[in-house]
């Protein structure tokens, strides 16, 4: 990004500065991804991490949950997972002679849905509806999910046998999609020397009170966006729609997602306004999983996204 020393604008410290520092102590060599995950959380969206197993997806989720003081739950998605396994069931209580609701893992503040593409579409959509609505309807009763409610879902792209890839409409529910990738040489070495990071994350203390996060989210949502910046976002969206390489352009919902993600990114940079840099920084994670190649199937490539950013003039 901008400069290594003092930035030209912003750089004001905020509540997330210590959180990001602590997270980077645990997840080594992935500051950009950690920051994106934090931005996604601040923007009130959900995160999809697509990568091979063992790259630290769970550690990331766990670390964030610990640092932010969020109640954490994890569901391993399998082909025989039923919707009720996520949302919860009512069982008959003999002592009281009535049904008692046992909440499922969805009733937590940070839910890690591991390998979401292994479950059947019916189960997938039960989770995704909960993500969208912020509530679940079980046996005719509507129950509100806790707030904040943040889902980190993971997908394994390599092993496609026996999976149910998320349809485009479901992918749209995720604000961002990121890849963690292999750690860098130095980071890997540090990792090997220090041993598994899970213990490290377990020892983390909460740096935020439960009431603080919604306040910060409200602060982010109110960050100033100038007409010129909206022009830029609009130009980007229009460019995806007129791009021969994409099957469809970005939807208006994607445009709103782009703006809220950019706001969160600008807030993390300690600025009180959104710059085109913020839009560019979050554009690939926000847009890539919503754009598909013209041939069908594959997601837009990183190179295509970068080329788009380089050609669309900043108005």
């Amino acid at each position: 990004m901008s400069s290594k020393n003092t930035p030209i604008l912003g750089g004001r410290p905020h509540a997330f500065t210590p959180i990001l520092d602590a997270a980077n102590q645990v997840i080594l060599g992935k500051p950009a991804e950690v920051r994106l995950a934090a931005a996604c959380l601040l923007a009130g969206g959900h995160l999809l991490i697509e990568d091979l197993p063992g790259l630290g997806k769970t550690t990331l989720a766990h670390t964030l949950a610990r640092l932010l003081g969020l109640q954490f739950a994890r569901v391993q998605f399998t082909a025989d997972l039923l919707p009720a396994d996520i949302t919860g069931v009512s069982i008959f209580d003999r002592e009281h002679g009535s049904f008692r609701f046992i909440p499922g893992p969805v009733f937590s503040q940070l839910l890690l849905a591991d390998e979401i593409n292994r479950a059947t579409p019916k189960t997938q959509s039960a989770l995704l509806e909960a993500m969208e609505e912020g509530q679940v309807s079980i046996e005719g009763e509507t129950r509100a999910l806790p707030s904040p409610f943040f889902v980190i879902a993971t997908q394994n792209p390599a092993d496609q046998i026996g999976t149910f890839p998320l349809p485009e409409s479901q992918l749209d529910r995720f604000l961002m999609r990121i890849e963690l990738g292999y750690p860098g040489r130095d980071a890997e070495r540090a990792l090997l020397a220090a041993g598994s990071r899970r213990q490290a994350s377990d020892q983390l203390a909460s740096l935020l009170t439960p009431e603080q996060l919604p306040q910060l989210q409200a602060e982010v949502a109110a960050l100033h966006v100038s007409p010129a910046l909206i022009d830029y976002v609009q130009a980007l969206i229009e460019a995806t729609r007129n791009h021969a390489g994409f099957r469809h352009g970005l939807s208006p919902r994607a445009g709103l997602a782009l703006l809220s993600a950019a706001r969160a990114w600008a807030w993390l940079a300690g600025r009180d306004m959104v710059l085109p840099d913020d839009v560019q920084a979050v554009f690939a994670p926000v847009a890539r999983h919503r754009l598909h190649g013209a041939q069908g199937g594959t997601l837009a490539s990183r190179a295509e996204i970068d080329a788009l950013l380089a050609t669309v003039a900043i108005p």
Partner: peptide, 11 residues
């Protein structure tokens, strides 16, 4: 450049 942000230009 067209898609270059002011900050990127400064860098």
């Amino acid at each position: 450049a067209p898609g270059e942000t002011p900050l990127a230009f400064a860098a």
